[in-house]
């Protein structure tokens, strides 16, 4: 079941073809995505970066079947999302996509274990106990399984969220600023876990972030500005990312001034 590292590194997990997303009308029109074309590879840890308002979250929402693009095509695991009805989108999210949110988004009334198993129980599937154990041990939450979210720290909550994303063995995991609400130690734990899930389980992970440290954990960084992909880095280090972000920022300032 588990994909081994390097299994299918050349296959595409998700892709965007000329994605355009427009919010509002007339004067208030905002082109959040302005023709994005990109392939996200299987078994890779990809970061999407960009200044605020660059469209990085929108790109992820469209790829994750949470939002529908105005035009263009989003493909996840070989399935084009444009033609899917709500029911099929639901199934796709349930079977093939995992999510980690900035604000953890755990159900407060459920214990850690119940939260982790929630996607499976929604799908009416029996959990694969061995895989569950493996994931729980990987995030180091075994002693906390019976606790409610309110009894856990932010880092612990986010690790529960990560485990929840992985437990259904999705083809691709989308993480939206997963360290946005965490201190640096907790951030390191969560990012370390995501990295390992890619290395050890062959998981595909796509993460939106504006934190260069977080991005430095990834294999590939895509840079967005004004709704288009302007650059990308492979196996980047922190300084490269910082430099790139700074230059994007400068370009934006220049543009605003002109």
């Amino acid at each position: 079941m588990t994909q081994q590292p390097g299994d299918a590194t050349n296959a595409v997990a998700a892709s965007a073809r000329d994605l355009i997303k427009v919010y509002g009308k007339g004067e208030a029109e905002v082109r959040a995505l302005d023709g994005v074309t990109v392939d996200l590879m299987q078994g890779e840890f990809t970061a999407i970066m960009g200044p605020s308002g660059s469209g990085k979250s929108t790109l992820m929402h469209c790829l994750a079947a949470l939002d529908t693009p105005t035009s263009g095509e989003a493909v996840v695991d070989g399935t084009s999302l444009g033609k899917l009805k709500d029911k099929d989108l639901t199934t796709l999210r349930r079977e093939r996509v995992g999510f980690v949110f900035q604000s953890f988004n755990l159900v407060p009334t459920l214990s850690a274990e119940e939260n982790i198993l929630l996607p499976l129980s929604l799908a009416g599937r029996k959990p694969d106990r061995a895989w569950f154990d493996q994931v729980v041990d990987a995030v180091g939450l075994r002693p906390r399984l019976g606790h409610r979210p309110s009894e856990m720290s932010g880092g612990q909550q986010q690790r529960v969220a990560c485990a929840r994303a992985l437990v259904s063995q999705p083809r691709i995991v989308f993480a939206d600023e997963p360290t946005g609400n965490l201190d640096s130690t907790s951030s390191a734990e969560v990012l370390g876990f995501l990295r390992r899930s890619v290395d050890e389980f062959g998981q595909t992970v796509v993460m939106v972030t504006h934190d260069p440290v977080a991005a430095s954990y990834t294999d590939r960084v895509l840079f967005l500005a004004d709704g288009v992909i302007v650059d990308e880095l492979r196996s980047p280090d922190r300084d490269q990312i910082l430099a790139k972000m700074a230059s994007l920022q400068d370009a934006a300032v220049k543009k605003a001034a002109s």
């Binding site: 949470l66 639901t90 999210r93 349930r94 988004n105 929630l118 996607p119 929604l122 929840r164 259904s168």
Partner: peptide, 10 residues
Amino acid sequence: ALLRALGASK
């Protein structure tokens, strides 16, 4: 919304 994102149907 979370349930829907995690794959709960309407």
